[in-house]
Amino acid sequence: MRRLPDSELEMMMIIWDVGRPVTRAEIEMQLPKERQLSATTILSFLSRLQEKGFVDVYREGKTNVYKAVVPKEEYLQEESRSIWKRLYQNSIGNFMTALGSGEELSEEDLDELQEFLDRERRERGI
């Protein structure tokens, strides 16, 4: 699966988060106020997404409607594997060093991480 540029990923995140087929105007309304794009720009991104097989387009009256073809979870899992491989050389130590080297992790983040690890161990019978 191809990695999406940030601008196209932004469109896909909107489509995925809405959870149903959407029009260009609906996508435009979901963009943050500081990230307003022209209709032409949005249509260009949607056209590229269609060419790459991420969305299907069909007509309802005079309006194009865009439907996600690639599930969000599938894309995010693939992207996570790619980041893991490229940036951390498949090393949990490298990842944890990068993650823990700043002060970005709150107590809640650490609790969530511990809960994840505990759940993984239970599911694996460890």
Rank of each mutant, 00 (worst) to 15 (best):
R119L: 12
T97A: 15
R24V: 06
M13W: 10
S44T: 13
E108A: 12
L99P: 06
R81C: 04
T97P: 04
Q89P: 00
L76D: 01
M11Q: 03
E74C: 04
L117D: 03
F116K: 11
V57A: 13
E28V: 01
V70C: 07
E78H: 13
R59A: 04
N64V: 00
R119M: 12
F95W: 14
I42S: 03
E79R: 15
G53M: 05
E10N: 10
T41H: 08
K85W: 07
V55N: 06
D118M: 07
R48G: 00
L99A: 07
L31N: 05
G102M: 06
M96F: 12
V22G: 04
E107W: 10
W16I: 08
L99D: 04
P5N: 11
E103K: 15
S101N: 12
S7M: 13
Y88D: 11
I83G: 02
E104N: 07
A39R: 14
E79L: 13
Q114N: 08
S82V: 07
N64Y: 09
E10V: 04
S7D: 08
I42G: 06
N90V: 00
R35I: 00
D6C: 01
L31A: 05
R86F: 01
W84F: 13
L49Y: 09
I92Y: 11
S7L: 10
E73G: 08
M29E: 14
I92V: 13
E123W: 08
L99M: 14
I15A: 04
E73D: 12
M1F: 04
D6I: 09
I15R: 09
E123V: 02
L31P: 04
N64C: 05
F116G: 00
V65Y: 05
Y75N: 02
Y75T: 06
E28W: 02
E34A: 08
A68H: 08
V65A: 01
Q30F: 06
V57Y: 05
D111P: 00
R121N: 06
I15S: 09
